[in-house]
Design a protein around this nucleic acid. Structure first.
Lengths: 234, 234
DNA sequence: TAAATAGTGTCTCTGAGACATTATATT
DNA sequence: AATATAATGTCTCAGAGACACTATTTA
């Protein structure tokens, strides 16, 4: 029985799309052109269509607002946010998603949103510039960043942040940016190479300015890390 | 703007309530008295009220259907299920939750549901008796069990399954039941006692039939395990 | 040649697994 | 005494951290 006291709700998806830009963990945000929260920055997202699955909706909204859905290999559900007054217009339930992409060479151009840009996550979350975030998107972003931090511990998802082919220094930079720590290059190398299928050697190498050229790798077939990559301190 | 093409959806919560009964990981299910899926077994849950938060709804439904919400210390969001045709009546989005309780001495009596009982998770998921599960609750249960299996690796949540005071054998039995493995008692003891705040010694001991009496413990203040409790094989 | 980065080698320490041994209860 | 379970002790091995050292490039 569907009780009368059950009010209809709006269903939306939001996407925490993370990448590494200039060695900083960054997130894609869109500037809202309309009320509520006009002028504030929001996670890309929108209403789910009838008969549309959640992940399809997330990909579609990302395509509409930022046209970068192609590169999306990994998209996972993050959590659902449904505090009654999170949207002043009506009750809206948002199923947040999390995705990782490499630093995109092509500029992110939105067709729908007023403007879309990458923000360094730290700047957005802890900056003193008074950047306003729409709805409860600060909380969603916090949860997404925390999920990313823990996921790269026990999965190979860190490799989703780099463009192929990549060096071990590139991959190490991902961990250092997401975790905000420095890792020992030697120990990091040993850990990555001792995990079968994390990366595959291309045989080629690349010279990046000064220093010895680094061997180039591609993502391997492995998805999990046993044992996990350990985060310093904690 | 809220598009016209956005159909209203029903919002429900479901709860995967796990416990250990007779050394088996078990889940609380209710028998449906009405269509759809009359006679099938379903996870406890129901529609979220207007202005009600998700976790409040989960606790309320659990109380209404099984009257055991009191003992619920841990209740976490599991995932959201929104496949368009998962409910034949209308589009219903279900936010599933996960909770752990000790084996309850008092019988679980439901005021609302036709009947409520504990099922061994294995029996329900892999049994050959043809137990029918309502909606996509088999998938939700699978996800809940898998979440539980991984959560007790790196948190102290296994202790939520035992009644205080408990022996280390009791706590070990939780891991063995949830993981479906045998653990070395000596190594398990060393691991638990070397994690500060996992358990606290009561000083008392308890004789359980034959064998040397075991020291009794209570849950400690720790919530995380560093390093994690390792699952054999994998 | 100096500087910088890539890559290798080695030592130590922690912790997990295997399993022997001792302790304390019941029957 | 026999048996069962609790609790302790010991050995070994895998893996992480620290860091010295070698290799290969550019300025």
């Amino acid at each position: 029985m569907i009780p009368d006291s059950t009010a209809p709700v709006g269903l939306t998806v939001d996407v925490v799309l993370l990448t590494i830009r200039s060695e900083r963990l960054s997130v894609l945000m869109v500037e809202r052109g309309i009320e509520p929260f006009a002028g504030s920055w929001a996670l890309p997202g929108g209403f789910v269509l009838p008969d549309e699955d959640l992940d399809d909706a997330a990909r579609r909204e990302l395509e509409e607002e930022t046209s970068i859905a192609d590169a999306l290999t990994h998209l996972e559900q993050l959590a659902t946010y449904a505090t009654p007054d999170r949207d002043p217009r009506m009750r809206v339930v948002s199923v947040a998603h999390l995705a990782f992409v490499p630093d995109l060479p092509s500029p992110v151009a939105g067709s729908d949103a007023a403007g879309a840009r990458w923000w360094a996550a730290d700047e957005l979350l802890y900056g003193s510039e008074g950047v306003r975030l729409a709805f409860d998107h600060r909380r969603i972003l916090l949860d997404g960043v925390e999920r990313a931090r823990s996921k790269i511990e026990y999965t190979t998802l860190a490799a989703e942040f780099v463009t192929e082919p990549f060096t071990l220094a590139d991959l190490r930079q991902v961990y250092e940016s997401v975790w905000g720590v420095d890792l020992d290059p030697a120990n990091f190398r040993r850990k990555v190479l001792s995990t079968p299928g994390f990366v595959t050697d291309t045989g080629e190498s690349q010279s990046v300015g000064r220093g010895r050229p680094a061997v180039l790798y591609r993502r391997g077939p492995a998805t999990d890390l046993h044992p996990a990559m350990l985060r310093p301190d904690s």
